[in-house]
Nucleic acid binder design. Structure first.
Lengths: 217, 217
DNA sequence: AGTCAAGCTTTCGTATACAAGACTTGAGTT
DNA sequence: AACTCAAGTCTTGTATACGAAAGCTTGACT
């Protein structure tokens, strides 16, 4: 399965939306973007269909397409689903994980610890991502892993800032160690519960942030 | 958010694919389908983009679009994710379900029992669906409920035949009762485990069917 | 008879043209 | 002065046209 032109445009736009080039609610101008990509409106509109299906934009007939605004409620819902999905990955991984994957997790955690001790939250963030993607893969379920990665990516813009919160990095680190312990022991339910809590915290932190913002208004 | 023309075409095609009008692997002829829907190729191709994003068709550049063939492995993976997703719905519903929703579930189960006693597997199938969708909704998480419904729909063609298997209807019925019990008691973990098992059975049954088919070759 | 190549046909991908709905702006009225 | 309505402009949605690539057919050569 090769990639077509509109696929590439869709990917680029998705990236730009997730990276914040287009603020939520912004109207995406077909003509302007077509020019920018050096194509006509046709392939651009095809890319729009893909983004709409992925839930990133909203098409209002005869009005145009707009970057979807995800409200606070929906965002919290997505964080909750992320927690449940990671829990599922953990549950299955606990039953299926290989020795070499356990070693990979240990290695990722070692790099996490280095970043933590050096106080480099960017590096921690990267290695944290590796850790989680390893667990997705070790669920032994490619479909599940893909869904997890998709949602992870979708939530990325909202997760990024959270490690800076006081003490989170250290706590996250120790949770990682517990999770690997549960995986190594093959304790599916415990691993699921640990991952659920580990991820759910992000939703809660986000909740706090939101509450803070609203109070400041 | 209103629906555009290509949305309607995409929905129709999705329905036709899931209903089996187009066998997996079939090539979808743009020109023919455009004629059939009384439009030009443009809106049809836009519909294709949506279906491709939903994973229902595969676009091979310069070759055409084909109804995706989901292999046995992927199908089992999807069943597994369905089980995990329903478990998540159950877990959250156990914490959040309302009295009136519990009554609705009782009512759905009563109708299931009627169908069971009358031996009407079609009616049972319908009421079973109502039961499960009620639980999706009672997760109190619209995003999760939508994901669950989406996957449920995707698996529909492969689930349909399974109630005919010997004794499955009666067993399914008694599992429903246990699930409601757990929901009423607010036992989140137990409810999740019950739903996981209840749904996972479908994947296993499917596995048996597949094994049978392969043996017959 | 089989194989390979060249031309032809078909179909895809994209640009462009056109029609119809929505927004804007300006004048007129209350 | 504010509101309404209408004409004009802009943008979207769809059809059509055109270039290019893949596959098929046919014919020649081994």
């Amino acid at each position: 399965m090769s990639r077509s032109r509109s696929d590439l445009i869709a990917e680029t736009l998705e990236d730009e939306i997730l990276r914040g080039r287009f603020a939520p609610g912004t109207r995406l101008d077909e003509t302007r973007l077509a020019e920018e990509h050096g194509v006509s409106r046709t392939p651009l509109r095809e890319a729009f269909q893909k983004l709409a299906a992925a839930g990133l934009i909203e098409q209002q007939p005869r009005r145009g397409v707009f970057v979807r605004e995800v409200g606070a409620v929906e965002l919290l819902e997505m964080f909750e689903v992320m927690a449940e999905t990671e829990a599922s990955c953990g549950r299955l991984a606990a039953l299926r994980i290989s020795e070499s994957a356990l070693a990979d997790l240990d290695a990722a955690n070692a790099r996490c610890r280095e970043a933590l001790e050096a106080g480099q939250s960017d590096a921690y963030y990267r290695e944290n991502e590796v850790f989680h993607h390893l667990i997705y893969a070790q669920s032994g379920n490619r479909f599940l892993a893909a869904e997890a990665a998709r949602l992870h990516r979708r939530l990325k813009p909202f997760r990024r800032t959270q490690l800076h919160l006081r003490g989170r990095m250290a706590q996250s680190m120790s949770e990682h160690l517990e999770i690997v312990e549960a995986l190594r022991a093959g304790e599916a339910d415990r691993c699921a519960a640990l991952l659920r809590a580990h991820v759910a915290v992000q939703g809660e932190k986000f909740h706090h942030l939101m509450a803070g913002l609203r109070a400041a208004e």
